[in-house]
Simulated assay, not measured.
Amino acid sequence: MCFAWKLAASVRGFNVEERQIPVECDITGICEEAPRDQQDAVNQIIQDFQASVQSLDIEGWQIPVECDITGICEEAPRDQQDVVNKIIQDLLKNNTTLQSDELVPNNSPRLNPVEDNIELCVSREKFQVLVRSSDIKGESGRFRRQEDSLDIPDECKEIGICEQAPKDQEDAVNKIIEDLLSKNQHFTSDVLPPTASRRKGADEDNMELCDSTVRLHAPQMVRDNNDNWHRVLNTNQNPVQKFRVEICSKSDESCSGIMTLQSGYSSRCVQKYVMREMETVNDKNEVVKASLPLPSCCSCVARVM
């Protein structure tokens, strides 16, 4: 229903300004009734959307075993391609943008473990595409400052993100956020998975080799690969962009003592990062999309002594 409403709001002739809103609705900002002249248009959009969704025979999909294990798949039944392509094209016509994460650059010594590290588990980094609507069209350019010109706490400098920012932009950033929220702007907001997940094989007997903290983080400052700090579109009053992060409790220290390695090797906990797209504010108070590194996991690696 929310998706259909967003599409309806973009239809020409959907004149919100001329609506007559009841007083009780105007007070709360929500209403279960709407002008009748829009009912047919809205119903048609809902029916079209429901028809598109119903045409996706999810129950009949044959999911490869390797996809069933991870819960994501880069392939889908070919009989659904035309329907999905049509939905995507309709979204793009309504100025819907596609969010795409980036891999951390290989030439970033702060964000990548040194070559001497040996991964204890084999893994692959992959991209996952998310769809969201956005009407932000800021000019290129970023708000950048070196650490020595900012009052950045030491704990923030260590991991490269901070939930506090210099006060000089607080009012301006709050105003930008409130203006965007009034336009129904959607911001990225991650959700932490349930504590227990059978599909992921969670087991209470498992023990982490590195202590870490997993939580939702609403960063106000993020440092890029060149050690410049960016002002993220978040404030204490309006933490609208929230990201799932995992931060090592003691990065660069030895892994749990329960693990033993063969002679000549030592272990240590390493903070790893992933590039995430977020809305930032440059020095002209313009909103700019930027891909910035966020701590994604705490990994135990081996190293030749």
Rank of each mutant, 00 (worst) to 15 (best):
P113V: 00
Q80N: 07
N107Q: 15
Q80K: 08
L92A: 13
V84G: 03
K86H: 11
V104L: 10
V83P: 00
N95A: 08
L111H: 00
R110F: 15
P113L: 01
N95T: 02
V83Q: 10
T97R: 10
N107M: 11
K86Y: 01
P113Y: 01
R110H: 12
N106I: 08
T96D: 02
L91I: 06
N85S: 07
N94M: 01
D82W: 03
T96H: 02
L92R: 15
N94R: 04
T97K: 11
E102R: 12
R110Y: 11
P105Q: 02
Q81G: 03
D79E: 11
P109I: 08
L92Q: 13
S100T: 12
P113G: 00
D79N: 11
D101A: 10
V114F: 08
D82T: 02
Q99N: 12
L98W: 13
N107A: 11
Q80G: 03
N85A: 05
S100Y: 11
D79G: 07
R110A: 08
K86A: 05
D79M: 08
P109N: 15
V114W: 07
K86F: 04
R110T: 05
D82A: 09
N112H: 04
N94H: 05
D101Q: 10
Q81L: 12
N112S: 09
T97C: 07
K86I: 06
L103H: 12
N107E: 13
T97P: 03
N106T: 09
V114S: 13
E115V: 09
I87G: 05
P105L: 02
L98K: 15
L92M: 14
V83Y: 02
N94T: 02
Q81Y: 08
L92C: 15
V83M: 15
S100F: 11
D79V: 03
T96M: 10
S108H: 11
